[in-house]
Protein backbone atom coordinates (compact mmCIF):
# COMPACT_ATOMS: atom_id res chain seq x y z
CA UNK A 1 0.00 0.00 0.00
CA UNK A 2 1.26 3.47 -0.91
CA UNK A 3 -1.56 5.70 0.21
CA UNK A 4 0.42 7.40 2.97
CA UNK A 5 3.11 8.39 0.46
CA UNK A 6 0.54 10.11 -1.66
CA UNK A 7 -1.06 11.73 1.37
CA UNK A 8 2.34 13.05 2.39
CA UNK A 9 2.87 14.33 -1.13
CA UNK A 10 -0.42 16.21 -0.99
CA UNK A 11 0.33 17.45 2.52
CA UNK A 12 3.67 18.80 1.38
CA UNK A 13 2.18 20.43 -1.72
CA UNK A 14 -0.55 22.07 0.28
CA UNK A 15 1.90 23.37 2.84
CA UNK A 16 4.01 24.69 -0.02
CA UNK A 17 0.94 26.30 -1.59
CA UNK A 18 0.00 27.94 1.71
CA UNK A 19 3.50 29.34 2.02
CA UNK A 20 3.47 30.43 -1.64
CA UNK A 21 0.22 32.37 -1.13
CA UNK A 22 1.84 34.13 1.83
CA UNK A 23 4.98 34.80 -0.10
CA UNK A 24 3.19 36.23 -3.12
CA UNK A 25 1.30 38.56 -0.82
CA UNK A 26 4.53 39.72 0.78
CA UNK A 27 6.29 39.93 -2.57
CA UNK A 28 3.61 42.15 -4.08
CA UNK A 29 2.52 44.32 -1.17
CA UNK A 30 1.22 47.09 -3.42
CA UNK A 31 -1.18 44.97 -5.46
CA UNK A 32 -4.50 46.28 -4.18
CA UNK A 33 -6.42 43.01 -3.99
CA UNK A 34 -3.79 40.46 -3.04
CA UNK A 35 -3.68 40.87 0.71
CA UNK A 36 -7.13 39.67 1.71
CA UNK A 37 -7.51 36.89 -0.82
CA UNK A 38 -4.01 35.44 -0.51
CA UNK A 39 -4.16 35.48 3.26
CA UNK A 40 -7.51 33.71 3.16
CA UNK A 41 -6.35 31.09 0.70
CA UNK A 42 -3.15 30.52 2.66
CA UNK A 43 -5.20 29.75 5.76
CA UNK A 44 -7.42 27.46 3.70
CA UNK A 45 -4.43 25.48 2.37
CA UNK A 46 -2.90 25.17 5.81
CA UNK A 47 -6.21 23.89 7.20
CA UNK A 48 -6.46 21.36 4.38
CA UNK A 49 -2.99 20.10 5.19
CA UNK A 50 -4.03 19.70 8.83
CA UNK A 51 -7.12 17.71 7.94
CA UNK A 52 -4.85 15.20 6.19
CA UNK A 53 -2.56 14.58 9.14
CA UNK A 54 -4.72 11.97 10.92
CA UNK A 55 -4.98 10.01 7.68
CA UNK A 56 -1.24 10.01 7.17
CA UNK A 57 -1.01 8.48 10.64
CA UNK A 58 -3.81 6.07 9.86
CA UNK A 59 -2.13 4.65 6.76
CA UNK A 60 1.50 4.97 7.79
CA UNK A 61 1.75 1.49 9.42
CA UNK A 62 0.46 -0.16 6.24
CA UNK A 63 2.61 1.75 3.84
CA UNK A 64 5.78 0.20 2.44
CA UNK A 65 8.81 2.45 2.22
CA UNK A 66 9.32 3.83 -1.27
CA UNK A 67 11.37 6.73 -2.57
CA UNK A 68 8.98 7.39 -5.46
CA UNK A 69 6.85 10.27 -4.05
CA UNK A 70 10.00 12.08 -2.93
CA UNK A 71 11.13 12.15 -6.52
CA UNK A 72 7.70 13.34 -7.57
CA UNK A 73 7.97 16.39 -5.42
CA UNK A 74 9.49 19.32 -7.28
CA UNK A 75 9.53 22.87 -5.99
CA UNK A 76 7.26 24.76 -8.38
CA UNK A 77 7.46 28.10 -6.73
CA UNK A 78 10.77 29.61 -5.72
CA UNK A 79 10.29 33.19 -4.62
CA UNK A 80 8.51 36.19 -6.08
CA UNK A 81 9.54 38.38 -9.00
CA UNK A 82 8.95 42.11 -9.18
CA UNK A 83 6.61 44.07 -11.49
CA UNK A 84 3.52 43.31 -13.53
CA UNK A 85 5.09 40.51 -15.53
CA UNK A 86 6.62 39.15 -12.33
CA UNK A 87 3.19 39.00 -10.73
CA UNK A 88 1.83 37.14 -13.74
CA UNK A 89 4.69 34.62 -13.61
CA UNK A 90 4.25 34.17 -9.86
CA UNK A 91 0.53 33.52 -10.23
CA UNK A 92 1.38 31.15 -13.05
CA UNK A 93 3.65 29.16 -10.72
CA UNK A 94 0.98 29.11 -8.06
CA UNK A 95 -1.47 27.82 -10.60
CA UNK A 96 0.82 24.89 -11.36
CA UNK A 97 1.31 24.23 -7.67
CA UNK A 98 -2.45 24.31 -7.06
CA UNK A 99 -2.95 21.98 -10.01
CA UNK A 100 -0.56 19.53 -8.39
CA UNK A 101 -2.62 19.62 -5.21
CA UNK A 102 -5.79 19.25 -7.23
CA UNK A 103 -4.69 16.14 -9.11
CA UNK A 104 -3.19 14.60 -5.97
CA UNK A 105 -6.53 15.19 -4.27
CA UNK A 106 -8.34 13.48 -7.11
CA UNK A 107 -6.02 10.46 -6.92
CA UNK A 108 -6.37 10.17 -3.16
CA UNK A 109 -10.13 10.33 -3.59
CA UNK A 110 -9.80 7.33 -5.89
CA UNK A 111 -7.56 5.61 -3.35
CA UNK A 112 -9.98 6.40 -0.53
CA UNK A 113 -12.73 4.66 -2.47
CA UNK A 114 -10.46 1.67 -2.97
CA UNK A 115 -9.74 1.65 0.77
CA UNK A 116 -13.48 2.06 1.47
CA UNK A 117 -12.56 5.07 3.63
CA UNK A 118 -15.56 7.42 3.54
CA UNK A 119 -14.01 9.74 6.06
CA UNK A 120 -10.93 10.32 3.91
CA UNK A 121 -13.07 10.59 0.81
CA UNK A 122 -15.12 13.31 2.49
CA UNK A 123 -12.00 15.26 3.46
CA UNK A 124 -10.34 15.14 0.06
CA UNK A 125 -13.58 16.03 -1.68
CA UNK A 126 -13.83 19.09 0.54
CA UNK A 127 -10.20 19.92 -0.30
CA UNK A 128 -10.97 19.41 -3.96
CA UNK A 129 -13.90 21.82 -3.82
CA UNK A 130 -11.79 24.53 -2.22
CA UNK A 131 -8.94 23.91 -4.64
CA UNK A 132 -11.32 24.34 -7.57
CA UNK A 133 -12.17 27.85 -6.35
CA UNK A 134 -8.48 28.61 -5.76
CA UNK A 135 -7.65 27.56 -9.31
CA UNK A 136 -10.54 29.61 -10.63
CA UNK A 137 -9.38 32.66 -8.72
CA UNK A 138 -5.80 32.30 -9.94
CA UNK A 139 -7.06 31.96 -13.49
CA UNK A 140 -9.36 34.98 -13.13
CA UNK A 141 -6.61 37.12 -11.66
CA UNK A 142 -4.10 36.10 -14.32
CA UNK A 143 -6.54 36.67 -17.15
CA UNK A 144 -7.14 40.20 -15.88
CA UNK A 145 -3.44 40.93 -15.50
CA UNK A 146 -2.18 39.42 -18.73
CA UNK A 147 -3.13 42.03 -21.37
CA UNK A 148 -1.53 44.90 -19.47
CA UNK A 149 1.54 42.87 -18.47
CA UNK A 150 2.16 41.32 -21.87
CA UNK A 151 1.15 44.07 -24.28
CA UNK A 152 1.28 47.41 -22.52
CA UNK A 153 3.97 47.36 -19.83
CA UNK A 154 7.38 48.67 -20.78
Amino acid sequence: MHLAHYLRLLHRSQTALAEAFREIRRGHPHEPDMYGVCERLAVQCRDQARWLEPFVRRYEPWTSPSPEPERLHQPLFAGTRPGGLGLLRDLHDLYLLATECDIACAMIAQGAQGARDDELLDVVRRCGGELAVQLLWLRTRMRHAAPQALVVAY
Binding site: P147, V152, A153
Partner: peptide
Protein backbone atom coordinates in the same frame (compact mmCIF):
# COMPACT_ATOMS: atom_id res chain seq x y z
CA UNK B 1 -14.23 47.18 -27.46
CA UNK B 2 -12.10 45.69 -24.69
CA UNK B 3 -14.02 42.69 -23.40
CA UNK B 4 -11.32 40.20 -22.50
CA UNK B 5 -11.93 40.90 -18.86
CA UNK B 6 -13.97 43.17 -16.62
CA UNK B 7 -13.29 46.91 -16.81
CA UNK B 8 -10.26 47.75 -14.68
CA UNK B 9 -11.10 48.77 -11.13
CA UNK B 10 -9.92 52.04 -9.65
CA UNK B 11 -7.23 50.66 -7.38
CA UNK B 12 -5.77 48.70 -10.26
CA UNK B 13 -5.77 51.80 -12.47
CA UNK B 14 -3.68 53.63 -9.87
CA UNK B 15 -1.48 50.56 -9.53
CA UNK B 16 -0.82 50.52 -13.28
CA UNK B 17 0.02 54.21 -13.10
CA UNK B 18 2.38 53.46 -10.23
CA UNK B 19 4.07 50.74 -12.27
CA UNK B 20 4.35 53.11 -15.20
CA UNK B 21 2.22 51.24 -17.70
Amino acid sequence: IPHWGPPTHAMQIFRYAEQGS
